[in-house]
Design a protein around this nucleic acid. Sequence first.
DNA 1: GTCTATAGGTGGATAGAC
DNA 2: GTCTATCCACCTATAGAC
Lengths: 199, 199
Amino acid sequence: MGSNAAMARTSATATADTPQRVLDVAERLVQTRGFNGFSYADIAEVLGITKASLHYHFPTKAELGRRLIERYESRVLEALAAIDRAEVDAREKLRRYAAIYVEVLRANRMCLCGMLASDYATLAKPVKDGVKRFFDRNEAWLVGVLDAGRKARTLRFSGAPAVVAQTLVGSLEGAMMLARSYGDVARFEAVAERLIAEL
Amino acid sequence: MGSNAAMARTSATATADTPQRVLDVAERLVQTRGFNGFSYADIAEVLGITKASLHYHFPTKAELGRRLIERYESRVLEALAAIDRAEVDAREKLRRYAAIYVEVLRANRMCLCGMLASDYATLAKPVKDGVKRFFDRNEAWLVGVLDAGRKARTLRFSGAPAVVAQTLVGSLEGAMMLARSYGDVARFEAVAERLIAEL
DNA sequence: GTCTATAGGTGGATAGAC
DNA sequence: GTCTATCCACCTATAGAC
């Protein structure tokens, strides 16, 4: 990370960093077409390198999938940490959580792990484990926000926070999927706002 | 339909009806692996016929997809009509609606159109249209139930019935996707029950 | 680290015999 | 309606030169 920033100073655009570029392209392809909806050839074409070069950095497609989740998860967790640092109330934290989804949708993409969840049956074990881990962490963060909101009396809800967290993650993922099919971001926003307002 | 029943009387098991068998197998494959996660070869192997024979009945994969939705939708709409005939209250209707999803999940499957929604970007136009139409009809039925429940004062909710219907469909689809990844039907049931109890 | 070349398999789809 | 045979494009992945 530090050396990367230093390099960026000397040549911002010429920085090769092929693995990152590969991940960028592959990420977009999974988010739009699904894990079985793209190939190494698609990535190679965009980057102007050969499929063989891709295999040097990511020997198998499963390994590529694993590293896609790894990077995506750490990015999302960083966004959640940023929300925590803002020290706003629980409801506002939930709104900012939903706003992450909105940004993805605006780029005409789905959540990476939402797409992988739908491809779940066809994934290699390490990729499956990565998907579950991603949702576990999202839910754990939500449980923290829900607990705090309930204690501070800024949120009111019945049932276990874990079930509410599962409802929120599942509902946002599902709403996202349908909103994308309809090409209608406002549809997602209306549903998300209602889900949060009900708490 | 009528001639089919007559034929079933003479030879229940030997009834060829290849197109229906093909649809049965293809349906299961889409519901478990997604539209890009199976091939004509997979269907042919299960049925013990050749790929060429499949193409006789379903010239293209897009046409197969279109007819899968067509049959699936009419089956679901029939289930919704059956719920209406029972003349139970609105909340009970919603519970029975969620129970349809539970049955699918128990068979380790996803909603056919939920899977297709995640493959949306890779689908041919007629298939895309079929997916949207399916969700439109689901939402229209839900709006009817929600309106009736609100009038009868058996349901209480804020906001437009259309938004609540969109929330329900999206939430159930999303909860289903995650529950399947975790191999945990109870997770879906807890979320569904909470969504309905909140109304 | 990227290339050419290729292996070895599978994808959807078609022609024409029976 | 089902078959054999085949097309050609594409798939993931590897060997070996530069």
